[in-house]
């Protein structure tokens, strides 16, 4: 189904520069296209909240739209949402796997996997094709995500999650670490709040993230699109208040935007495209 990947040696052309910062940079298997644009990892827990999903999509979106590469791990939850956001912008998305590049795990993310390849992104792994997913390979995968990226944004993470490993490795490699502050009593935010205590940059929103990243990576190469719906999405019922029209009229507008491919809806929330 997915074609054969190619092995890129550490000294080879197109080897991601950041990976050479690792003590033991591995040769990597690449399916699709890598670009030299700086990578920004958007990662988090699989056990996330809808709030986390919304932010991950929004951040994945603005990063890729700004012309940087959105890097994540194709896991459920935050990772998948970050990829989806990036794909929505038609920007560059890279998924780093803990299994062979021909193995889509979890299978439910197959549409994302396919779209990444269709839109000129890349699937990357240090394991040969056919390698099955295994729990112990994921921390090694996280190390690649951290090294490949110029900055790591942790959306939601529990105190013990893999996202924290990525963040700590990134910090050790001198990458910028961003974390989304959350309620102190929410399990899914505990990891992020600890990162903040330990000196990570707090993220105050999509626009704020772009500004902060611009300070590190230089001005974003991409251009901005004007929209009437906020990046993080909005409740349809809120739009009725915001626009001061009936729910039926809101639905007509939302449906029209959707049909025109300019908005996307999930449940009772609508997101810009």
């Amino acid at each position: 189904m997915s074609g054969e990947d190619r092995l890129v040696e550490v000294s080879g052309d197109g080897y991601p520069v950041g990976l050479r910062d690792l003590e033991d940079p591995p040769p990597i298997h690449v399916l699709g296209q890598l670009t030299p644009s700086p990578g920004v990892a958007v990662v988090g827990t699989r056990r996330c909240t809808r709030y986390g999903i919304d932010l991950a999509e929004s951040f994945g979106h603005v990063v890729a739209r700004s012309g940087w590469t959105t890097v994540s791990g194709l896991a459920r939850g935050i990772d998948a949402a970050a990829h989806r956001g990036a794909l929505r912008s038609e920007g560059h998305a890279v998924a780093v796997l803990g299994c062979g590049t021909d193995v889509c795990y979890p299978r439910e993310n197959r549409p994302i996997y396919d779209r990444i390849l269709d839109t000129g992104g890349a699937i990357v792994s240090e394991y040969p094709q056919g390698t099955p997913p295994a729990r112990w390979r994921f921390p090694a995968r996280n190390r690649l995500i951290a090294a490949m990226s110029a900055a790591v944004v942790v959306i939601e993470a529990s105190r013990t999650g893999g996202a924290l490993i990525t963040a700590r490795l990134a910090a050790e490699l001198g990458r910028e670490v961003f974390a989304v502050p959350g309620d102190v009593d929410r399990e899914a935010s505990e990891g992020c709040n600890r990162l903040l205590r330990d000196g990570a940059h707090p993220v105050l929103g999509a626009e704020d993230l772009v500004e902060e990243l611009a300070l590190i990576l230089g001005p974003p190469p991409g251009t901005r699109v004007v929209r009437s719906i906020p990046d993080g999405g909005v409740d349809i019922e809120e739009l009725a208040q915001l626009w001061n029209i009936s729910i039926s009229e809101v639905l007509v507008k939302v449906g029209t935007l959707e049909l025109a491919g300019r908005a996307r809806r999930r449940g009772g929330r609508v997101y810009p495209v």
Partner: peptide
């Protein structure tokens, strides 16, 4: 018409 379809679209789930 289109508006009716649009509203139905926005209600689909």
């Amino acid at each position: 018409d289109e508006e009716h379809v649009a509203e139905a679209m926005a209600l689909r789930n």
